[in-house]
Simulated assay, not measured.
Amino acid sequence: MRLPISMAAAIALTAAVPAYADHHSGSGHASSTIVETAVASPQHETLVAAVKAAKLADTLGGEGPYTVFAPTDAAFDKLPAGTVADLLKPENEGMLRSVLTYHVVPGNVTASQLVGMIQSNGGSAELKTVQGGMLTASLSGDNVILTDASGGTATVVQADLKASNGVIHATNAVSMPG
């Protein structure tokens, strides 16, 4: 059973990251793929470079549907110095692919569906990623929080950026598969 998203949660999920929200004006680019939508975003340049380096652009540009919890450039900037440069090296393609696919969930999970899953499951929802690991979604006040396998947390700062092959939820941290 899907529970409706609270008005406060809906506002919190869609109000953050003003430049990104203005660029995507609510529903995103429903005729663009996830990759095309990310390329158009000024907040996801690092993610786009990583997707290309991991040779995932064709996959994420494919049929889907996918739900992508997309770390912003500021999220990548929070990683220890040198982490992104190391991940982008050709010899680390497998590790980079693992990290990136850990942010992708099969299907089209909107913010209201995710909040409903959390509420109907006693306060958290397990999300199996394309990488094979689990992300745990929960609510902290009106914010959706993702907890990764290492115990790290990421907050959804912009939700429901619709694409032709799924939906993107921008996050303020990079989730790690453990």
Rank of each mutant, 00 (worst) to 15 (best):
M1K: 08
R2V: 12
L3S: 13
P4A: 11
M7K: 14
A9T: 13
A10D: 05
A10E: 11
T14S: 14
A16M: 06
A16W: 10
V17D: 09
A21F: 00
D22C: 01
H23V: 02
S25M: 12
S27Q: 10
S27K: 09
G28F: 06
G28V: 00
H29E: 13
H29W: 11
H29L: 15
A30R: 12
T33H: 06
V35I: 12
V35H: 04
T37G: 11
T37I: 05
A40P: 00
A40C: 03
S41E: 04
P42L: 09
Q43T: 02
H44W: 13
H44R: 09
T46K: 10
V48R: 05
A49L: 07
A50Y: 09
K52P: 00
A53D: 12
A53N: 08
A54T: 04
D58P: 00
T59P: 05
G61H: 11
G62A: 14
G62T: 07
E63D: 15
P65Q: 06
P65F: 06
Y66Q: 12
V68Q: 02
V68T: 01
F69N: 08
F69G: 07
A70K: 06
P71G: 06
F76M: 10
K78Y: 04
L79T: 04
A81T: 09
G82C: 14
T83N: 04
D86E: 15
D86R: 12
L88M: 11
L88F: 09
K89R: 11
K89H: 02
M95N: 10
R97N: 12
V99Q: 09
T101P: 02
H103F: 02
V105M: 09
G107R: 05
N108L: 15
V109R: 07
T110W: 07
A111W: 08
S112L: 08
G116W: 15
G123K: 10
S124N: 14
L127P: 00
L127H: 03
K128N: 09
V130D: 12
Q131H: 03
G133A: 05
M134W: 03
M134V: 12
L135S: 06
L139D: 08
L139V: 04
L139A: 06
S140L: 10
S140M: 10
G141C: 08
L146S: 03
D148F: 07
A149W: 08
A149V: 00
A149G: 10
S150H: 09
G151M: 12
G151N: 11
G152F: 04
T155Y: 04
T155C: 04
V157H: 04
Q158T: 05
Q158R: 14
K162C: 01
A163Y: 12
S164L: 11
N165K: 03
G166C: 08
V167I: 15
H169T: 02
A170G: 07
T171H: 06
N172V: 02
N172G: 01
A173V: 00
M176A: 12
M176R: 05
M176G: 00
P177A: 11
G178P: 00
